[in-house]
Amino acid sequence: MSADLAATAPAEMAHDHAHDHAHDHAHDHDHDHDHGHADHGHHAVVENNFMGQPNIKLAMWAFLGSECMFFGSLIGTYFFYHGKALVEPMPDKVFSIGITSISTFLLLMSSLTMALGVDSMKQKKRDMARNYLFLTALLGAAFVGFQVYEFSHFVHLGLKLSTSLFGSTFYVMTGFHGGHVTVGVIWLTILAVLIDKGKLNPVKLPINVEVAGLYWHFVDIVWIVIFTFVYLLEFIQ
């Protein structure tokens, strides 16, 4: 999330003010000048497209759209081969409802703290936003920890990537999800640290946090789907 994105943009042009939260605050970051970003001056603004919406947010939604297809096909593939594994262990042998429910709650709560973080940022309560971001990253890291534990437990039970159709489709699907969570954790941590050090351009801060939030919530909804269609389904059969 480099701050230079906007350095060149005199985007005061044809955009409607209704949607441009950041713009109104372009002048109240004087106290930030001593942090070495004075070169952005008070002309730093969020770069908008011709429709008056921030490019970065548009890009994130487009990216999330493509991520839908990505995870859609991974989950679809898991389903296509569900029950076709010839080699033990089978899903009902390895899944444990305890671990899954804890990690599910953690991720759900992290979505709440993320939403609260974005909200605080819009209220210009920067310290509070930073705390929420840290908390979100922490919950996400705990989720990843549970997944690492789960994977090593499964491997211990004899389920490897190459064991069976179940092993391959399961690990690829949940592994990619875990990878996304990890990326999110790193992103949020960096963001929170930068906020803490005052290194980010305050004009663009709200949109940066909002976009990170979109990514984070998306990772959560992917888990909602995996949790229901992969784990719970096994338990109710």
Partner: peptide, 10 residues
């Protein structure tokens, strides 16, 4: 941007 790929994925 989001819902149309989602529909395709579904």
């Amino acid at each position: 941007l989001f819902l149309s790929p989602l529909a395709i994925a579904a």
